[in-house]
Design a protein around this nucleic acid. Structure first.
Lengths: 253, 253
DNA sequence: CGAAGCCTTGAGATTCCTCAACCCAGGTGG
DNA sequence: CCACCTGGGTTGAGGAATCTCAAGGCTTCG
């Protein structure tokens, strides 16, 4: 992990010029709010693919906004069984997921690709709530939104069959990526291994593989060269009994 | 559902005298904060056991604090499969669980026992964040805490065996109730039917029954007359690989 | 007394898991 | 250049966990 900014284009000196913020997926902020956020941000952090951002059971007193790349949040049992809780994509706020202020993280966060994050010290959060209540509200809104995604995921893992779970996950990720403008020619980058998919869906690796192949043979998805495309999204939606509110602009810290 | 206050003792005229708040499970607030909350509260709502507080897919523009009784949050698939997302106990803040402000609830909430709630119109939330940033922070903290519980639950449903899931749920609920001072002589009220347990744990009713009986025969729990006792909590904790931070005082709106 | 809701149990079917191979591509060191 | 290793992905076979179907019991309530 390094705190640096090798790529000036990807790590603008001010949040006004933030590449993410201009993507159209996020709400716009008043200039003074932007200025505050820029001042609040204490730095930029890079974590290489496969690296760990937050260790399970270790102290973590920091908030991050994921600027680029994929990560995932997980919990494990002591015998090694692992459950992926959710996937983190650009724009996601990281660090609201537990009784914060405690210091002990109840989950781990690993980078799936090389990632870059904006770092916000937890100590400044009080100031944020005090001076910029609208931003405080946004933070709460983001927490509630993430909870909504967890709700969906819980329904998936608890009540959907293996095929439905896979369909759900593929649709869900595709939609989020598309919303961020990360879809090109009907396909998106897809850095997950089948083990990740299995751990996210509460399935074994082998069964995940077989389910994936089956859906592929049915023409419901194509997964090649680290890219995913969904030739028949309608069928996937039907299979998964997928329902989701239309995606909307979202606050960005 | 009625908006009334038949029981003056249970529904104090001011929040200072709130029975819940005095239980020792909650953080204390400054007098002006209390006064604001009391003013913000628009009324009291009773829902009988089995009633629905929030309909899946219906608009809901209200926040509640559960004052007394049990409720649960759930989502369903169109063929009727249901997943219980979490159980709501006195002190829990209700209504942060989705992209709020949207109006459409993505989950349902049913009362498990007769319940009483304090009602807070969503419109006042901006004022709360603006004038009492500490309360805004508390709201966010509560959202994060609930998310932590969802994380645990997801691990349970995704990666634990049936017996481990049951052990986990019983321990979890017992601890929360005990923290609220609702345990008497080593037992707590337990209004769940086996169908609720099954729907919470992602199991079938039949398998839930068999698992429950097995654990009972092993002396891990007793469930009679609507009360639950755990004669051997250690064994339950070991079985479930249960780990949880010690329960602490929690904000109360 | 009948009906409804919940709990219980058995039997057989199904899904999903574990174990065990094997393949393929990419990287590394001799 | 090649032998080897590693990290994925793929497949088959057998076993375990869980599900569905079916039936019956108990209690409560009208």
């Amino acid at each position: 992990m390094t705190i640096s900014c090798p790529d000036p284009g990807g790590c603008a000196p001010n949040c006004t010029a933030c590449g993410l913020r201009q993507s159209g997926a996020f709400t716009t902020l008043a200039p003074d709010q932007l200025a505050f956020i820029e001042h609040y941000r204490s730095g930029v952090l890079d974590v290489p693919a496969g690296g760990t951002l937050v260790h399970e059971q270790h102290p973590s007193g920091t908030l991050y906004t994921l600027y680029a790349g994929w990560a995932f949040r997980y919990k494990s049992l002591s015998d090694g069984r692992r459950q992926i809780l959710n996937f983190l994509l650009p724009g996601d706020l990281i660090g609201l997921q537990q009784e914060f202020g405690e210091g002990v993280a109840m989950h781990g966060i690993d980078a799936l690709t090389d990632i870059r994050l904006c770092v916000f010290p937890r100590a400044g959060l009080g100031t944020l709530f005090g001076q910029y209540p609208d931003l405080g509200y946004d933070v709460t809104w983001l927490a509630a939104r993430e909870q909504g995604m967890l709700d969906d995921h819980l329904l998936t893992v608890g009540r959907r069959t293996a095929a439905e779970r896979v369909a759900m996950l593929l649709m869900h990720l595709y939609r989020r990526l598309d919303r961020l403008g990360l879809a090109q020619d009907g396909s998106v980058e897809f850095p997950l291994t089948q083990q990740h998919i299995a751990d996210a869906l509460g399935l074994s690796l082998v069964h995940t593989n077989k389910t994936l192949r089956r859906l592929q043979r049915l023409g419901l998805h194509e997964l090649r060269g680290g890219r995913l495309s969904l030739p028949n999204p309608r069928a996937l939606v039907r299979l998964a009994d997928y329902y989701d509110a239309p995606l909307r602009r979202v606050p960005l810290l």
